[in-house]
Design a protein around this nucleic acid. Structure first.
Lengths: 214, 214
DNA sequence: TGATGAACATACTACCGGGTATGTTGTCAA
DNA sequence: TTGACAACATACCCGGTAGTATGTTCATCA
């Protein structure tokens, strides 16, 4: 128990690797990122990375998991709030979008992982690792589904196919991972304003077109 | 001029390669797709591909261009229609979404290309090739911007930042390239129903949340 | 009919990247 | 003090891949 400091150093080293890996995966994608790239970014060599992670797949999986952990942590406080759907949905959506912005590299890795799974571009060994990650991610998605359904029952949301709507909503809420870049001198309020626009757009989509005629 | 048949055969062969390449890029991404993969899918060898394309980058660029050509072809007829913004926007959006669905492999390649450009994950030689492709894509984006602004002036659209809204709209309209899969026995009407939901969601986002309170 | 070239296939090279096997160094515990 | 182990670095192997160099076949045309 006297080696609490050692454990902390260990965790710091691991965390540094995860951050560097997330950045690399974001910048070049999974396949185009080499272990040497990650090591170079740290001013280290492959040895350090393979000392902490079994394989490239394992490293990527841990980045993915970290991203999802961050999401859960941010959104979960709002999930079990009683009351009408709309304010709860707004809180969850806002927390989600802020996470997309603030932890972008990890969230991009999550996206890449989902894409790889959808494409089936995984080897048999990767299979079960990925299946667990995707299951994790699906659980997270379910947090929103209940609120979506409640909102439709309450008449505040208006949509046809839940599955498609869920896809569209997440596509909107996730989209900052692709186009958001921090402005120099940007404050928390600025960031929240951007996130607010994203949430409003998503909400508009969920509410439907109403009386509009095209 | 007697070799019209020959030219046709040539174009068919090229087109076959492009289709196979688009499918491979969609399934595995750019980096993870090898020229041998594309050749295997055609029951051919690298020789055939390198006979028609200088490099992997060149092949990818042509797939990208083909995808954008298809989009222009589908949307352009509606762009210059006079009258209010909403019906024109709806026609353009619908045409766009249908293209996303019907030519998904090519559209995924376009997406991949944009991502690669954003990440700057391109070698100097690729630079100018990609810059032209991205410029092509940006022109296409501009087709929608005018209508968005007109719609806001007319009061039918309600959004704050044009740039962000444009991103969100395209993210929505493009999203079927990720989650759409053809159902067995699906008719044209079925497909259009799916596309319609996408367009409606996007329209809701553009119209804003109106009188809703969160 | 023979020559020419398009449209490929085959064979090869050079390099890169995942993974491993083997040092090296500092730290802590007994 | 020493031995053991964590935390790396170094050196190496090997499979895969972009690109090339060189056949081979067949249609067309002079």
């Amino acid at each position: 128990m006297a080696n609490g400091v050692r454990d902390q150093v260990l965790e710091d080293s691991r965390a540094d690797i995860l951050r560097a890996a997330a950045a690399c995966f974001m910048e070049r994608g999974y396949a185009a990122t080499s272990i040497d790239d990650v090591a170079r970014r740290l001013g280290a060599t492959k040895g350090r990375i393979y000392h902490h992670f079994h394989s490239k797949t394992d490293l990527f999986a841990e980045v993915f998991r970290m991203g999802m952990d961050l999401n859960y942590e941010a959104v979960e406080p709002f999930v079990h709030r009683e009351g009408p759907a709309l304010p709860r949905w707004r809180s969850m959506a806002m927390a989600h979008v802020m996470q997309m912005i603030l932890t972008k590299p990890f969230q991009r890795a999550v996206w890449i992982g989902v894409e790889m799974h959808l494409r089936g571009a995984t080897t048999p060994e990767q299979r079960d690792v990925f299946n667990k990650l995707i299951a994790y991610r699906s659980d997270y998605g379910r947090l929103f589904r209940a609120t979506l359904l409640q909102g439709r029952d309450e008449g505040v949301f208006d949509f046809d196919d839940l599955s498609i709507t869920n896809q569209l909503m997440f596509m909107t809420l996730n989209s900052p991972i692709f186009w958001y870049t921090e402005r120099p001198g940007e404050t928390r309020a600025d960031t929240e304003a951007v996130a607010g626009q994203v949430v409003d757009y998503a909400l508009g989509g969920l509410m439907g077109t109403r009386e509009a005629e095209g």
